[in-house]
Design a protein around this nucleic acid. Structure first.
Lengths: 336, 336
DNA sequence: CTGAAAGCGCTAACAT
DNA sequence: ATGTTAGCGCTTTCAG
């Protein structure tokens, strides 16, 4: 069905070596033979077999990407960015959905090893020792996306969560709020949980506001349901709060829904700022002001880093991506 | 870095053929040598090179999936389903993001051809002649997901859009509504646009309601912005409408937002039913009643079909997946 | 400038 | 039951 290099060679009356040279535009042939061969390639609509190439070159032009969940909305944007950059550089991406499951992750790594991918992008999760060791043995580049590692020196791409959370809280403060609460993610999550809480506290302290733990309600995760529960709890523990920093847009959505249920008007009675700035942020009522992470660009960047490393670059620096605040209508100016 | 079959053979004092036999559990060796070889494999932590295998077996255990957009939320669920089924069967999935762009799509198909994927899942778009012809030449299985082809006989997995739209409209009718409008997608979209409009009309007619074209506003696409525009237009053209069928959840979200802006209460003054039942549906205020498509299962099914075909099954039937109505709170009982 | 030949890591006849 | 050998489709010495 598919022609091989032999067919081309025969048709052009040259050896397969010559065809190969032309294919890989090395030197060592006349213009005339080149034309002849190109013609044959054209006529047969020949395309080299990437598998055979991979076998000999030890390079498959394929990278693997590990995601804890494929359903979370932010994954889509990361993946879109990765895929775009990869394709631009002639590579493909294999998606792996680990469900944050250790043995599943190891199985995927094994698979990616057998498939001889050129590099791995590991996203949104703690890089366990087991994973790291294995990838070390695979001896291919690794970059961390939307996560980082304290234990190992692996290049990463992420925003500075602590700093970003600081910015979000500061935004609320600048708007005149003094009694500010936070519905956080899981405080044991050292990547996306704890740092955002810390940044929140930093901002309050730096601006001379007292940090009252009853105004911080910690959730299990970053979901809509967590947001609903979170707001209810907040109203019980700290009804005096006039503004809330939600550690994710989904939490913010949940909080808005719960607030609506309780007849609390947003932003008049309660301001809310989200985190992530997913596409849903514009869809809430009122539209959600949110701390924006540039997911698409982060994905692109991570992919570009991987390819730099694949191409032999030794020193690739980690990237702290800039965050910003997407102002919409869920935060009101507070007059004292 | 990675050991080869030769290393194993040497270590176990057998030939590579024997190792290969054991690896592929064929017959032709004693229990004793099997143990010996397995031990060597274990000790070296040997794993066969999938690339080399692919070259000779002409089977890469990899499938390609084409999506028009990676950003739409429903894609994620389809992909999650595909990925799960594929991984269960020992295959990987390469994602391709065509942006509905013809030449990009062709480039991807070319790439998948060179990478010798075992099959292709084509989603959510019209299968153009050019694509079809090319895949025919590749001579690998193809299944359509969330789309179908009139022109070619290609197995597909989707819900019956016309029927599903009928159900959604019927639901509104059963709730007592008689003046019902629709904010549709693009009417020129023969897959997801037109059929839903037709189904909507069918339901009205079957229930003795007149079909008034001014109550059907057609959008360009299925987005939030389309929903906003759609609702405004609807209020101008057909303010008497008490219930609206939105052709997507995003449209429904937009309509809800616009309604809120105009001070229209949902569902008291206006009922809305969405379509898709994405995870955001539960996040609106009020939570959105929506016609549910089982995306995850559709993805799984499509993947399973591809693998059946890869394994030589000749006759795989297309699947019309069941739809259902996820009742939440955006539709009110209408008393006459 | 060009071709013959070895070999990437594996499977599958074909021998023994 | 096991080994030898010829490829899969390609790249890359090494000759000429």
């Amino acid at each position: 069905m598919n022609y091989t290099i032999k067919d081309v060679a025969k048709k052009a009356n040259v050896s397969i070596a010559t065809v190969s040279r032309i294919l890989n535009n090395q030197k060592g042939y006349s213009e005339k033979t080149k034309r002849k061969v190109l013609e044959a390639i054209e006529e047969l609509d020949y395309h080299p077999n990437a598998i055979a190439r991979g076998l000999i070159n030890k390079k498959t032009s394929t990278i693997g990407v590990l995601f804890p969940a494929l359903s979370s909305m932010l994954v889509t944007e990361l993946l879109a960015g990765i895929e775009k950059a990869a394709h631009q550089l002639g590579s493909s991406v294999i998606v792996c959905h680990t469900e944050s499951n250790g043995s599943k992750t190891m199985k995927y790594l094994q698979l990616l090893n057998e498939k001889r991918v050129d590099g791995i992008i590991f996203t949104s999760e703690i890089l366990k020792e087991e994973y790291y060791e294995f990838i070390q043995k695979m001896n291919i580049p690794l970059v961390l996306l939307s996560t980082e590692s304290r234990a190992y020196s692996v290049p990463y791409v992420k925003v500075d969560d602590r700093h970003a959370a600081y910015s979000a809280a500061q935004y609320l403060i600048k708007k005149g709020h003094t009694r500010i609460g936070m519905i956080s993610g899981n405080q044991n999550d050292l990547i996306a949980g704890k740092p955002r809480i810390d940044g929140f506290k930093d901002a309050l302290m730096d601006h001379g506001l007292s940090v009252d733990d009853s105004r911080i309600v910690c959730s299990e995760g970053f979901t809509f349901a967590d947001g609903i529960k979170g707001l209810k709890k907040m109203r019980q523990q700290a009804a005096e709060v006039t503004a809330i920093f939600a550690a994710s847009d989904e939490i913010a959505f949940g909080a808005i829904s719960a607030a609506y249920q309780q007849g609390i008007r947003i932003p008049e009675e309660l301001s809310i700022i989200g985190y992530d700035n997913l596409s849903i942020a514009e869809m809430s009522i009122p539209p959600l002001t949110s701390l924006a992470q540039p997911f698409y660009e982060m994905g692109e960047k991570a992919a570009n880093m991987i390819f730099d490393m694949i191409n032999g670059e030794q020193l690739v620096e980690s990237r702290i991506m800039p965050h910003s605040i997407m102002e919409r209508s869920s935060v009101a100016e507070k007059e004292e």
